[in-house]
Design a protein around this nucleic acid. Sequence first.
DNA 1: TTACAATACATCGTCGATCTATGTATAGGC
DNA 2: GCCTATACATAGATCGACGATGTATTGTAA
Lengths: 122, 122
Amino acid sequence: MTARFQRDLLRGSLDLMILSVVSRESQYGYSIQKQLNLATNGQVALPAGTLYPLLHKLESQNLIRSRWDDSTGRRRKWYDITAKGRKALNQRTSVWQNYVACVADLLGDLGGPVIAGQQRNS
Amino acid sequence: MTARFQRDLLRGSLDLMILSVVSRESQYGYSIQKQLNLATNGQVALPAGTLYPLLHKLESQNLIRSRWDDSTGRRRKWYDITAKGRKALNQRTSVWQNYVACVADLLGDLGGPVIAGQQRNS
DNA sequence: TTACAATACATCGTCGATCTATGTATAGGC
DNA sequence: GCCTATACATAGATCGACGATGTATTGTAA
């Protein structure tokens, strides 16, 4: 029945997902919302109350940059990733992957194949 | 330098890790703390203030069961997983793996090989 | 033309899980 | 005897996702 992921799962990887989506091409809030939802088969359904404050936070950290544009007929706030944001994306991605590998180890890889040659731990 | 994982990463997978460790053999709080720390190369360093309340929560949910025992010379509270706990472990493991697969998709697998044939989404 | 749904952005207060700080007590090594 | 490691516990702070709510425009179907 495609249940939603719990809020706690999102913590620690939500910034990452947003940055990743924005890094591919210019995005505006609503498009990010739709893309995340589509890519996860409805399992990541970001409420506006989560998304917009998060975008403001990322912008205040200079990881993304915004500009208003309504030349398309729709008033939209477009976001682009910054150099600093791209760096953060890479850094956080490896931390995330490292963490996931640790959890997989702990779970004893019950139900998932081991990824050979992947860096884990220090 | 083996930095610690941020608290947010733990959210959503900490219960899982505890249940997994307890599911293998009887544990007491301090042993869980040490094992998690060792298995993750120091990256998961659970403070006592996180661990013990969590164990109490899991017990109140009947996912684990406790008994005091000091026959080893040390006064320890031993935990075992229950049938319900084992069920929860399996269920949460698959939710976690599903989520991880979704994030990997979103990240475009930049830096990690694709795991073929693994269930994701619905 | 009038509803209604979808698009598009925003803020405020709540909630809950982890953490910091603090406390107690015993065992073992120097 | 002193200090560290072991072993458990609770109280309060912190912080981020979320629910509720608000505003405005566009597209669409009755």
